[in-house]
Design a protein around this nucleic acid. Sequence first.
DNA 1: CATATCTGCAACACGACTGTAGCAGTAATT
DNA 2: AATTACTGCTACAGTCGTGTTGCAGATATG
Lengths: 186, 186
Amino acid sequence: MLRSIMRADAVRNLAAVLRTGARLLAEDPGTSMSAIASAAGVDRTTVHRHFATREALLSAVFQAKLDSSEKVLDEARLMAAPVAVALHRYVEGIIPVSREWPVDTRIKMQQDPAASTRRQEQSARLDAFIQRALDEGHLRRDTSPAWARAMLDQLVDSAAHRFPEIDAAQAADLVVDTFLNGLGTH
Amino acid sequence: MLRSIMRADAVRNLAAVLRTGARLLAEDPGTSMSAIASAAGVDRTTVHRHFATREALLSAVFQAKLDSSEKVLDEARLMAAPVAVALHRYVEGIIPVSREWPVDTRIKMQQDPAASTRRQEQSARLDAFIQRALDEGHLRRDTSPAWARAMLDQLVDSAAHRFPEIDAAQAADLVVDTFLNGLGTH
DNA sequence: CATATCTGCAACACGACTGTAGCAGTAATT
DNA sequence: AATTACTGCTACAGTCGTGTTGCAGATATG
């Protein structure tokens, strides 16, 4: 999609379709192109002009999410910054991304090998960070890396979608605190 | 569905369709009746004989899950047993249920008001238990009940589906420990 | 303003899924 | 063994979503 030689209104429409699509597909993965089109305020055929097939639209939505989250991963400096700092920065950055692109990247990605490998790369970066936190003694030594990773993902998801009214900074505090300390009295 | 006057093979088929349906619908909520039928080893029309419409099948799957989880809630004695005991018993009981009926009960329940209210009732029982744990000092006083509830749900989900190889008892240990203590070093 | 680009609208073909019906054959129940 | 209940198979109609085309009108761009 060569945005540089596109007319301005076309770029607007394309962005609207992408965002609306992400929102509706998150609510119901079976949402039709017609539904997305009308919700985005354009005709169904216009959507088809930008995205030849339904799969192409899904790919574009995933790509958009992957772009955003990759930027967050870069800026968090997971392997360079102190663990506590990197963790908080990542969470604070990824929550708005998760809210803007609420689609679940786990669904139906086997169709899109390019996006699939890209997702795995990003996942590996997070896994490496968890391992680092474990090695440096920030996590209990009996913690399974996979379990810690799952917890982090789930906490981010909860904060992003079940508590949409909390701003990212506060939500990050909550997530990190719960991740490290749990909810029980000590 | 009057199981008492049904023939034995019919009961078997019905159960197979229900379980297979739950499994496939969890992977992809858009799974067709044909796909469920063939995966269950019966003809498509046979499925229609048991469940007139697609919605009816979904309802039945949800009902089955609600039946199982209600039993767990009862046996956990959430308001009578000591908090720590009730929590562990609930988690240990609900994980197999979540594995057997992996469908997400949040999806498309507005169509089924009966199941919807039943789900809300069960949800309220868990909320009350969280509140009790808070009142009795088992949770940090600054904990939001809604956040604690979300955490519990997510932990159970993770243990049930992302770690299917761990047996329910061990998984319950892990969930409760993470819920109360988090993963950080203290 | 003149041009190229984009859009909405209407129409069409195609395939997939749903839901129904009849009937012959099979399996369970007494 | 006789009866009833159940199933597979085939066929059909209806609906919905997808993807494509043509054209006239609107909008951005220079």
